[in-house]
């Protein structure tokens, strides 16, 4: 259990984390979602006692991190996979950490096995690929069999196999009753792994709710219909009380209904259908709306101090486009 109360971090005049209140509960994967620069890493560093809160507090199982009897037995964290002395072998790196918490050597072997690094355990970690470095970081996080695990952007830069491995690992850890707290700037990634969502934008907690609730609240679904006779089909569907929007490409977006019902209507009227797809409108968009609001709010606030903090907006747009260059709007089919 991680509990943040009025957690605040100020760098000069910039509020990196602004009175954040949230709780991370055991037994599920809690996604910590926010654009780059929203304060995710700062919050995680404060949880681990690396950075000192300007005000407020954060506790692990009721105590501040530095008071934990043996931190690695209670919390495992992967903040930055590169935070390793490159001249030290993977085995020795883990041994150094194990000794710091009085853990036996057998734990080092156990985690090396778990993440599949035995073939390179004796090699200097400076030469590791990003994926291997990430595995080493996860091995370090699991060294003390902790009840709480924290991962900061764990899938960044990983290949598809590595991404899948981490997703499954996080789910398995949560299924064992552990608290799993994982940050990401990608809603699509969170949608696949997280059970609960804490959304942060410009240091403020914007949402703290179960994933299902977030989806229900924020996602809009519709059925995309393509027909050679859209002009005839549209009024028939509207008659049923469904909202129908005609798109420039002559397809129809039909809201408040299911594909089967639309198919039935078309069949009854003897109209042709070329496509009938349920589209879950992007959670990314919902998330962007949410955080964009915080950006505008912030900009209004800081008018008297000079120019508003822009990078959150700019930083946000870029990864989305590069993730899905051919379809700016991420779609997910639901069967």
């Amino acid at each position: 259990m991680i509990q943040a109360t009025e957690l605040t971090k100020r760098y000069g005049t910039r509020l990196a984390v602004d009175h954040a209140d949230f709780t991370v509960a055991p037994g599920k994967v809690t996604g910590f979602l926010g654009p780059n620069g929203a304060g995710k890493s700062t919050t995680m560093r404060m949880i681990l006692g690396l950075d000192r809160p300007t005000s407020g507090s954060v506790t692990i199982n009721g105590v501040p991190y530095h008071r934990l009897a043996a931190p690695l037995r209670e919390v495992g964290a992967l903040l930055d996979a590169k935070a390793v002395h490159g001249g030290r072998s993977a085995y020795n790196h883990l041994l150094v950490l194990a000794k710091a918490n009085g853990l036996p050597r057998s734990r080092v072997d156990a985690v090396i096995d778990l993440v599949g690094l035995h073939s390179v355990a004796g090699k200097r970690s400076g030469g590791f690929s990003l994926g291997m470095g990430q595995r080493l970081g996860i091995a370090a996080a699991l060294l003390g069999d902790p009840g709480i695990v924290m991962f900061d952007e764990p899938v960044n830069g990983l290949d598809p196999e590595g991404i899948l491995w981490i997703r499954n690992l996080m789910k398995a850890l949560a299924a064992e009753g552990r608290t799993v707290f994982v940050s990401s700037h990608l809603m699509s990634e969170m949608a696949l792994t997280a059970d609960h969502l804490v959304v942060i934008g410009l240091g403020r907690i914007l949402a703290d709710e179960p994933m299902a609730e977030f989806i229900a609240k924020n996602s809009v679904s519709y059925v995309r219909v393509r027909s050679p006779q859209p002009a005839e089909l549209a009024p028939k569907l509207a008659l049923r009380g469904w909202r129908v929007e005609r798109q420039p490409d002559e397809s129809l977006h039909v809201y408040d209904t299911q594909p089967a019902q639309i198919g039935d209507v078309a069949g009854a009227e003897g109209l042709w259908l070329h496509e009938l797809t349920l589209v879950q409108s992007s959670l990314e968009e919902a998330f962007m709306r949410l955080t964009a609001g915080s950006v505008e709010y912030h900009a209004g606030q800081s008018d008297d101090q000079g120019s508003p903090d822009g990078p959150a907006v700019a930083g946000w747009g870029t990864p989305l486009e590069s993730q899905a260059p051919q379809a700016p709007q991420v779609e997910e089919r639901i069967q």
Binding site: R45, L48, G49, L50, Y65, H66, L68, P71, L72, V75, A77, L79, D80, K82, A83, V84, H85, G86, G87, V96, L97, A100, N101, A140
Partner: peptide, 16 residues
């Protein structure tokens, strides 16, 4: 070197 590599944060996480 601990600061240069970021190892210091890892060290402090293990021994705060």
């Amino acid at each position: 070197t601990e600061y240069g590599t970021g190892m210091m944060r890892t060290s402090l996480t293990a021994f705060p």
